[in-house]
Design a protein around this nucleic acid. Structure first.
Length: 414
DNA sequence: TCTGGGGTCCTAGGACCC
DNA sequence: TCTGGGGTCCTAGGACCC
């Protein structure tokens, strides 16, 4: 048996922890650059605010319903998430942290599942203040169904017998199934398949040939056959990407250089934190896909490195070399992406007979950089090329303090 | 004016090997 | 005139997830 624990309206709930005056009121959280809505409280959903709605298009609705608005704050969410996961991990040795707000728990051999689910839910709420729902079922796909269904009841749902499962699937929208995205949903609904029960009744061959082996696994899981195991150990990462839209579009090469340097440096921090090195770096520029069509361009370059690296200076230089190759004059760019692939652990990096590279251990500069930025706050010491004015940084008009991760922002109790 | 960021997996097709 | 069989690896594109 598997449980899926899922935080309710996670980002919105994180903000409410520190500004409880918004409990019971509509709240939305915006994406980077305050672009579109990525989280909504139940009250905001009831106001008709759609997931993914562009903020500038719904401003009048926001004002009309007096909806509280927050810029996204991933440092905060990451920290609160860790608290939730720590609590969940007390209930079973088999834990898979599936995303920032979701966790699968292996409950094979456990009894009284409904009672246990209730205890899990109440413990997390009591210890962290974050409301969660718990769905329990024989497979992960069914645990997802149970979880979603539980949100309309009291937050805990067990689907164990075939009768319980069939009943839950009978009115479960096919597009809400885990593994059915926009394309498949469209195709299925066009063919008259609207519920999970109808999907489960389809012939196996049809599912395999139209939805590949992935769809077939999901189909079998709906019949109670577990095909997607619990991943208690994380697979090594295959790629790592830093990409962010600018606060303002730009044609200016110098601004692109600053942004590219900054993203490459950020990539270095992420690589070193996970003790990985990259053997390939890619850089891509993107124009605004919503802008006038004639001016679109997505130039990109992939650069194999002489030896795998994770030091800031190398990464920045490589990324800038790529930028120079792909830059196009006259295009209004909205975003630059810097991607590292061919990742391997620092300890497995080979030296190169043809270069002066002495190995990752000798990278004192990055060590000092990381140590200073950890102690004095990120951005304290950075490459000059990252710029001072940084006109391209993202818009975060509704940003709240880092209540749990910055000493200066800690809440004062009178 | 203003439309997110960071990932995974699978398949088909092409280049290449003996 | 006749032109096999069995592989691997890589990439692009398309689907999906939160």
């Amino acid at each position: 048996m598997f449980a899926l624990a899922d935080c309710n309206n996670f980002y919105a709930s994180c903000h409410r922890l520190f500004e409880p005056q918004y409990n019971g009121l509509p709240v939305v959280v915006l994406s980077n650059n305050d672009g579109c809505v990525i989280a909504r409280s139940n009250e905001a959903k009831a106001c008709g605010i759609a997931m993914g709605a562009p903020f500038f298009k719904i401003k009048s609705e926001i004002e009309k319903h007096k909806i509280a608005v927050f810029s996204s704050h991933y440092t905060l969410y990451g920290d609160i998430s860790a608290r939730v996961m720590t609590n969940l991990a007390r209930f079973t040795p088999d834990v898979e942290v599936y995303s920032i707000d979701e966790c699968f728990l292996g409950l094979s051999g456990f009894d009284n599942l409904y009672e246990y689910g209730k205890e899990i839910r109440e413990t997390v709420i009591k210890n962290t203040g974050i409301p969660i729902s718990v769905g329990i079922a024989p497979t992960k796909v069914l645990a997802k169904v149970a979880n979603k269904t539980s949100k309309k009841h009291n937050g805990v749902m067990v689907l164990q017998t075939e009768a319980q499962i069939a009943n839950a699937l009978s009115d479960y929208p096919v597009e809400d199934l885990w593994g059915v995205g926009r394309q498949f949903a469209h195709k299925l609904i066009k063919g008259g398949i609207e519920t999970a029960a109808q999907f489960r009744a389809l012939p196996m061959d049809w599912v395999q040939s139209n939805m590949t082996i992935v769809g077939l696994r999901m189909w079998r899981e709906l019949w109670g056959e577990s095909c997607i195991p619990l991943k208690t150990v994380l697979d090594p990462k295959k790629g790592m990407c830093t990409s962010r839209a600018f606060g303002k579009l730009t044609t200016d090469y110098n601004q692109l250089k600053e942004a590219t340097s900054s993203y490459a440096a950020r990539l270095g921090v992420k690589l070193r934190r996970e003790k990985l090195c990259a053997s390939v770096i890619s850089v891509r520029l993107l124009t605004n896909k919503f802008g006038p069509e004639a001016l679109q361009a997505y130039p990109a370059i992939t650069i194999p490195l002489a030896h795998p690296v994770n030091n800031t200076v190398n990464l920045v230089n490589t990324a800038l070399f790529g930028l120079k190759k792909i830059y196009l004059r006259g295009y209004l760019f909205q975003k630059v992406e810097v991607t590292a692939t061919g990742l391997l652990p620092e300890t497995e990096v080979q030296l190169n007979i043809f270069t002066a590279f002495k190995g990752v251990k000798h990278d004192q500069v990055s060590k000092v950089l990381d140590r200073l930025n950890l102690h004095y706050g990120s951005g304290t010491l950075r490459m000059a090329g990252e710029g001072k004015a940084q006109e391209w940084t993202m818009k975060r008009e509704f940003l709240r303090p880092s209540y749990t991760t910055n000493w200066n922002d800690i809440i004062k109790v009178k």
